[in-house]
Design a protein around this nucleic acid. Structure first.
Lengths: 127, 127
DNA sequence: CTAGAACTTTGAGTGCGCTCCAGGTCAAAC
DNA sequence: GTTTGACCTGGAGCGCACTCAAAGTTCTAG
């Protein structure tokens, strides 16, 4: 008994995810969806709450620079069923490590930028 | 009296910065250098310590996703002299804010990824 | 003196992630 | 019944940041 069986149009999903309808279609073509998106009234997409949840998660993978090809790998594993959980976990764990490194790198760069800003600030309006 | 007046070849600078020689030439063509790079023995580039320092800083700008066009803007201002300090400061401050937002976004995504990892971990080897 | 490595230039090519276009379908509103 | 607007498809196009190719020059080692 699913809690929500509401279906959403592509523009609704775009609004919910911050993606464009173009991008949603592109992701689908790129093989990123876990299962085929439902269609209604001959051809219009109808996204389930599950679909939307997955899209929201995959945008988090994207925003941490996981390439689309890797997300496709993940989706393919998921489509193959429960037997691939360990592989999916490993993929996520690998990515986790990369993201942590990414964060440190950005933080270090931010520190350098802040330092430069402090120098400019002093030069412009010395204490 | 400069502390260091040593000069570096392009491959030395590549080694020091983690960029390739290709990329160093590309950056120069793109107008990112603060001043023309010295040349030695008819045509080979000779980078000063100042040049290297700037390249190191600009890679920090790049690693925080500041587009090359914006770095060129910054370099152009710098080439115009001291009168542009305030503009350069503003550019850096604007970027600083973007980087902070970027960091928060990545951290939020990382939290979501960690959550997913925790779910997989439990499923695979329940406590 | 010569071989090979390192460098030079201009301009083309690549990979990624969208982004858009053209031409068509469909459903609801008037 | 036609107009409007959201949606569909396949494929082309774009912007960014490199990355490389080709052909030539110069430095370094033996």
């Amino acid at each position: 008994m699913p809690t929500t069986d509401q279906l959403y149009s592509i523009s609704e999903v775009a609004a919910q995810t911050g993606l464009t309808a173009h991008t949603l279609r592109y992701y689908e073509r790129a093989g990123l969806m876990l299962e085929p998106v439902d269609r209604a009234s001959s051809s219009h997409r109808r996204y389930s709450a599950r679909d939307v949840g997955w899209i929201q998660f995959l945008t988090k993978l994207r925003s941490t620079s996981l390439p689309i090809a890797r997300i496709r790998d993940y989706a393919e594993l998921a489509r193959q069923g429960d037997g691939t959980s360990a592989d999916r976990l490993e993929l996520l764990q690998r990515h986790r490590i990369a993201v942590a490194a990414q964060l440190e790198d950005i933080q270090a760069s931010l520190a350098a930028i802040d330092y430069k800003i402090s120098i400019y600030s002093e030069r412009i309006s010395p204490a």
